[in-house]
Amino acid sequence: MIEGFVALYIFMLAAFTGYEIISKVPVILHTPLMSGSNFVHGIVLVGTMVALGHAATPLEQLVGFIAVILAAGNAVGGYVVTERMLEMFKTSNKGDK
């Protein structure tokens, strides 16, 4: 069990990290970055796997199953669309084609 204050410190440091990462981002990357951070919270998939993993009743299993589907959608969909957007930036960075 993560102790209360340790959790609080993790929250605080993670919040500053997130704030620092974004602070100097150019406008052109707002959309891809939003999409990228949307992908990162797809880590909720791990949480849903654990939650479904110790589900004991059919109701819990149903809720867990739906949660896993949603979380997998978040992670995979977030990755695919972010990658597609950033791929274009790569080609255009090389200049004329």
Binding site: I2, A7, I10, F11, A14, A15, F16, T17, G18, Y19, I21, I22, S23, V25, H30, L33, M34, S37, N38, V40, H41, I43, V44
Partner: peptide, 14 residues
């Protein structure tokens, strides 16, 4: 915890 809060903070700023 870390991924969620990082995105929470980054998303708020964004």
């Amino acid at each position: 915890m870390i991924a969620g809060i990082v995105v929470g903070a980054a998303g708020t700023l964004l």
